[in-house]
Amino acid sequence: MALTETVTPVWTQRLLHAKREVVLLAAIVLIGGFFAVSSPYFLTLDNLTTTLRNSVDLAVISAGMTLVIISGAIDVSVGGVLAVSAIFIGRGFQWGLPAPVIVLLGLAVGTALGTVNGAVVAKAKVPPIIATLGTMYVFLAVLFLVIGGEWISGLPDTLSPLVSGNLLGLPVPLYLIAGVYGVCYLLLRHHAFGRHLYAIGSNENSARLAGIAVDRVKIQVYALLGFLAATGALIYVARLRNVEVNIGTTIALEAIAAVILGGANIRGGVGSLLGALLGVLFIKMIQNGLVLIGVSSLWETVVIGGLLIVVLTADALKHGGPQRAQ
């Protein structure tokens, strides 16, 4: 089967994606209106700017998660990748390394861990959710072994401009998000790598018959997600200037929820970067709004998990059966 035949269904479903994005945008407007009425602080410039600065790490990781889900895979270990990368970033400061070396160290660690995930999935043929669930526990074990159950705190503000800085009158996080999503868009729409991701997610066997190096592409997309998780770690350290023992525990759920809410199909072959970004906005708006109206933060995960279940159930009913095995 030719590659063009494999990926054609992706383009015929763009109208469906647009509908999901429009629905999500409408939900953002409606729920945002509710929070604006419920709290006088919701629409203030300070609150909106703070929400943006708190969203950048999730937005960056969600871009990479979109690519992974398009390929028909998933990564529940991304929080562990972020955590281990953050550890090395924190230790780098404690060791007195120059800032550029610390940045490269963190990015290298995240990329390496992502590559490990990809190799386990592609070469060992372990189903993605099982593989990354296993590596998640390994990464969390590394977290506790390295920091011994204690925080790495009191880090310098060297990286702070990544989240608190402004450039040409706009917050630096806007440039970070635009850069990451711009590059991912080019990869998906104007590079063979993106076409291969859609082809693999639509029908892996057909992709192999079309001559695509499926294993290599899987490893590459996991490595890219690892790189972006490490970028999220840099942003996390820049914002909080410490590394907590429970770092990254919810970000995988939030990233997956953002991507699925944005129109991606958990079976693969379908995904939208714009939808994922709207999903991030939706999740962060709910988190911020619940805090402002005095609802316990414990309900944030309940709401996000509940939304994810509803969307996945609706998708399963629409496609008439259980998800395909990976």
Rank of each mutant, 00 (worst) to 15 (best):
R91C: 01
I177Q: 03
L224N: 01
V68K: 00
V243I: 13
A122V: 10
G211N: 07
A141H: 05
A230S: 12
L224V: 09
K218A: 02
I256R: 08
L261G: 09
S272N: 09
L312N: 05
V183E: 05
W151A: 14
G320Y: 06
L261T: 10
G194Y: 08
V109K: 08
G33S: 04
T44P: 03
I235A: 06
E254G: 00
V291I: 15
L24D: 12
Y185L: 12
F144L: 10
P156E: 03
G64L: 04
H196G: 11
Q13R: 15
I260K: 04
Y236P: 01
T313F: 09
I70V: 14
K284P: 00
A73R: 11
I147A: 06
G182K: 09
A178W: 09
A26S: 12
V221C: 05
G275W: 11
T135L: 13
G275I: 05
V78S: 01
L224E: 02
W299H: 05
T49P: 01
A252P: 05
L30S: 07
L308K: 10
I200F: 03
N166Q: 08
F227N: 01
A59P: 06
K125Q: 14
A255P: 03
V245D: 01
L159P: 06
A141C: 06
R14M: 14
A255E: 04
A257F: 14
F282V: 08
L107Q: 03
G92Q: 10
N288P: 10
T301K: 03
A199C: 11
A192L: 09
V101I: 15
L67W: 02
N242A: 14
E21H: 11
M65N: 07
G106K: 02
V84S: 12
R14E: 15
G148I: 06
P100S: 13
V116I: 15
W299F: 13
V7S: 01
A213I: 02
S55V: 04
F42R: 01
K125G: 05
L30D: 03
G149T: 12
A233C: 10
N166C: 00
R91T: 07
L58W: 03
G134C: 07
P127T: 14
L58T: 08
N47E: 07
G294F: 12
G114Y: 04
N288G: 11
R241H: 14
G72L: 07
V280K: 00
T12H: 15
V221I: 15
W95H: 10
K218F: 12
G72F: 08
Y175T: 00
G262H: 13
H190A: 09
R14S: 13
T249C: 00
K125S: 12
V37W: 14
G263H: 10
P156Q: 03
Y137S: 11
T49Q: 10
A99K: 14
K218L: 15
K123Y: 15
A192N: 11
V78M: 07
R241I: 04
G262W: 13
I247S: 04
L133Q: 09
L140T: 03
P9Y: 08
A233Q: 04
A229K: 02
A27G: 15
A2H: 13
T249L: 01
A192Q: 12
E21L: 12
I102R: 10
A86Y: 01
A316P: 08
T313D: 05
V37K: 09
V76Q: 03
L277K: 11
V302A: 15
V245Y: 01
V303E: 06
L281R: 02
G32M: 04
P156D: 04
T8F: 14
F144S: 08
L290K: 09
